[in-house]
Simulated scan of single mutants.
Amino acid sequence: MRPVKKIALLHDMCGVGKAALTNMMPILSVMGVEACPIPTMLLSTHTGGYDSPAVVQIPGAYIRSCADHYKEQNITFDAIFVGYLGHVDMIDAVIYFIKRFPDTKVILDPIMGDHGRFYSNFDESYAFAMRRLLPYADIILPNLTECYLLTGQEYQITGNHRHVLTLCRDLKKLGASDMIITSVPKDDCKKGIVLYEDDAFLYLGNGEMLGEYHGTGDAFDGMFVAKLVLGYTMLESVQASHAFVCECIRESERYEYPEREGLLIEKTLRKLV
Results as ranks from 00 to 15, higher is better:
Leu134Met: 08
Arg162Val: 09
Leu133Lys: 11
Pro135Gly: 09
Gly159Glu: 11
Leu141Tyr: 08
Leu141Lys: 07
Arg169Lys: 12
Thr166Cys: 00
Leu134Arg: 12
Gly152Thr: 01
Leu167Tyr: 08
Ala129Met: 13
Thr145Gly: 02
Tyr148Cys: 03
Tyr155Leu: 04
Leu133Phe: 04
Pro135Tyr: 03
Leu165Val: 05
Leu165Asp: 07
Ala129Ile: 13
Tyr126Leu: 12
Ser125Met: 08
Leu149Trp: 12
Leu167Arg: 04
Tyr136Gln: 08
Arg131Met: 04
Asn160Met: 05
Asn143Glu: 13
Leu149Met: 06
Leu144Asp: 10
Thr151Pro: 02
Gln156Met: 06
Arg132Val: 00
Ile139Gly: 13
Val164Lys: 13
Ala127Leu: 12
Leu150Glu: 07
Tyr126Val: 10
Glu146Asn: 11
Thr145Trp: 10
Ile157Phe: 06
Gln156Arg: 08
Leu133His: 13
Tyr155Lys: 10
Ala137Glu: 01
Gly159Arg: 07
Ile157Lys: 14
Pro142Leu: 07
Ala127Thr: 03
Gln156His: 05
Ser125Tyr: 10
Leu149Val: 05
Ile140Phe: 07
Ala137Gln: 10
Pro135Asp: 06
Tyr136Gly: 09
Ala127Met: 09
Asp138Lys: 06
Gly159Ser: 13
Ile139Gln: 06
Tyr136Cys: 14
Asn143Asp: 05
Met130Tyr: 15
Thr166Ala: 06
Phe128Pro: 01
Pro142Val: 01
Thr166Trp: 03
Arg169Leu: 09
Leu149Gly: 05
Gly159Tyr: 03
Pro142Asn: 03
